[in-house]
């Protein structure tokens, strides 16, 4: 559905996208996770043919978005970073205008607009000017606008920006449903770790235009290997236990020890403690969260290594780093 191969995009001296390779399969939800300015929005613009790449190749729906932009864009629905509705039009009119642009007959567009707005709980605001809506409602209308022509591919730039927790959860449910029940493919950008973990089949971590890692949230945790194990030992023996395990262990208190180790290494750690005469009362492995991965990939040492050209930035390279 989407294939990026060693894509580069520069703006003057700034390389906004630097050798990114990435595939998104049909029905998959892939998240681009990164700070503001990491290159996420530029990738979305490249995928939809708003900008041509300076290097590499892009295929969207099997087409070249630079050459076949019209065809590509007719099959994509885009939620821009800000809702950017036409404020003097009603929400329904906003949707109907974009339906007309996409060639949806007026009668069908009207019915779809009403149904989408009801589903997204825009409520009685259907027929008032969009400028009177709250930020959250505007975001919902913008999502409905992206869906009005029933696109096969959704490009969502920060889809839960400005939404209250309940509205954000509703959007996540809708996006998951669109992928699961309707076979829609979704490429979304976010800087929200919890959102990426909750919504995405796979997450691509992007920094300074480079793809640092890609995989399911679980895979990423394992590859980076920053899982921890919390071990409760006999009172007063945590320090001794920490010395026994080595540099990876930290005594959190007199009886709790934290060990940096993936779940697969837990039995070996416990065996070592028991053989060393430590009474182990409780073991709680914790898989590395997306947050752990993200933080590790953004720590100063990793940034320096990346900037020195240690990694290639491609999906394959990102996988192999695990």
């Amino acid at each position: 559905m989407i294939e990026l191969d060693d894509v580069v995009r520069r703006f003057g001296a700034l390389t906004a996208v630097d050798g990114v390779s990435l595939t998104v399969s049909e029905g998959e939800v892939v998240g681009l996770l990164g700070h503001n300015g990491a290159g996420k929005t530029t990738i979305i613009r490249l995928v939809n043919g708003l900008l041509p790449p300076d290097g590499g190749s892009i295929r969207t729906h099997g087409l070249d978005p630079t050459r076949d932009g019209r065809e590509v864009r007719s099959r994509t629905g885009v939620l821009t970073e800000y809702p950017a509705l036409d404020d003097f039009l009603t929400p329904r009119e906003n949707l109907e205008v974009y339906a007309a642009i996409h060639g949806v007959p007026a009668g069908v567009a009207h019915e779809r607009a009403i149904a989408l707005l009801e589903r997204l709980e825009v409520g009685e605001a259907h027929d008032g000017p969009a400028r009177n809506l709250s930020a959250g409602l505007k975001q919902r209308v913008a999502i409905a606008r992206a869906l009005i022509h029933e696109p096969a591919l959704l490009l969502l730039d920060e889809p839960t920006n400005n939404l209250d927790p309940i509205a954000a959860r509703e959007v996540r449910v809708i996006v998951r449903e669109l992928a699961r029940d309707h076979g829609r493919t979704v490429l979304m950008s976010t800087h929200n770790l919890a959102e990426a973990a909750a919504m995405c089949d796979r997450v691509a971590i992007v920094r300074n235009g480079r793809l640092l890692a890609i995989g399911t949230p679980g895979e990423l945790g394992e590859r980076v290997g920053v899982g921890t194990v919390e071990i409760e030992v006999a009172a007063g023996s945590a320090d001794a236990a920490a010395r026994l395990v080595g540099d990876r262990a930290v005594a959190e208190s007199g009886r709790v020890l934290s060990v940096a180790a993936p779940p697969s290494e837990v039995p070996a750690v416990v065996r070592k403690l028991v053989e060393g005469g430590i009474d182990v009362h409780r073991v709680q492995p914790r898989e590395a969260s997306l947050e752990d991965v993200y933080v590790q990939l953004h720590d100063p040492a990793a940034v320096a290594a990346t900037d020195a050209g240690v990694h290639a930035g491609s999906e394959a390279a990102a996988r192999s780093r695990g």
């Binding site: 939809n48 708003l50 932009g69 019209r70 065809e71 864009r73 007719s74 994509t76 885009v78 821009t80 800000y82 950017a84 509705l85 036409d86 404020d87 974009y98 642009i101 996409h102 913008a142 606008r145 490009l155």
Partner: peptide, 14 residues
């Protein structure tokens, strides 16, 4: 200025 141009550019209009 209103930010509505980007959404328009993402449509299939030439």
């Amino acid at each position: 200025e209103r930010g509505t141009l980007e959404a328009l550019l993402h449509t299939p209009t030439t």
